[in-house]
Design a protein around this nucleic acid. Structure first.
Length: 208
DNA sequence: ATTCTGATTCTCT
DNA sequence: GAGAATCAGAATT
């Protein structure tokens, strides 16, 4: 079935190294179905983290209870709790055992705007509903309980590769936001001109 | 417009 | 105990 979660097309694309998988994810949609309704976002901004080889990755020092799902197979969600109050979500990518992941930094809400707006508690611009990793997960209704959830088999959460194809010429790259180590590795990817893309902020702790 | 700060708690050293 | 893949609102760098 074209366009539905499957175990062949998207799964094999996500098994690539993190920077390649990140490009695959741009333009994909992520849906969260709940009794309250369904919110779907089209991903417009992501960041690659390359596990044990990447000083900026949570998995850099090896596996811990928090990062366990990153060491598993691609296509699952890694959720972490940030700054004492936010949840951020990553798609686990790469080979099983290699702890790579792609942080979902921003997306355009394409379904369930009313529900997303209620969760965010804002009457601001639609484009801002999914701007920033914590805002994006809040709009989707994703939290700690979704850590490890599968994304490829049409469950409560479903990642799809069926949006209109992304023109590779629209993809921009730059340093990752807010990281203090490997601050100049250009593994943030976004779609040029998308109003939902977040503003770049260098970590105040990053070396000059 | 840009820069800084407070909120809040989990994780690992 | 320190630091953290953030965000909104306040201060003015």
């Amino acid at each position: 079935m074209p366009g539905s979660p499957d175990g062949t097309g998207l799964e094999s694309l996500l098994a690539a190294p993190a920077p390649e998988a990140a490009r695959v994810l741009l333009g994909c949609t992520l849906s969260h179905r709940t009794p309250e309704g369904t919110v779907t976002v089209r991903l417009t901004e992501v960041e690659a983290y390359a596990g044990e080889d990447d000083p900026a990755s949570h998995a850099w020092r090896g596996p811990t209870p928090r990062t366990a799902v990153m060491f598993g197979p691609a296509g699952h969600l890694y959720v972490y709790f940030s700054y004492g109050m936010h949840f951020c979500g990553n798609v686990v990518v790469g080979a099983d055992g290699h702890a790579s992941a792609v942080l979902l930094r921003a997306g355009e809400v394409v379904e369930g705007e009313d529900l997303a707006r209620r969760r965010r508690g804002t009457s601001g611009r639609t484009a801002a509903l999914g701007r920033g990793p914590a805002n994006l997960m809040l709009a989707l209704g994703v939290d700690r309980s979704h850590d490890g959830a599968g994304l490829l088999h049409d469950g409560e959460l479903a990642l799809r590769h069926d949006a209109p194809p992304v023109d590779p010429a629209r993809v921009r790259t730059g340093p990752r936001v807010g990281v203090s180590r490997a601050a100049d590795v250009a593994w943030r990817f976004w779609l040029d001109g998308e109003p939902s893309v977040s503003a770049y902020r260098r970590s105040p702790r990053a070396p000059l």
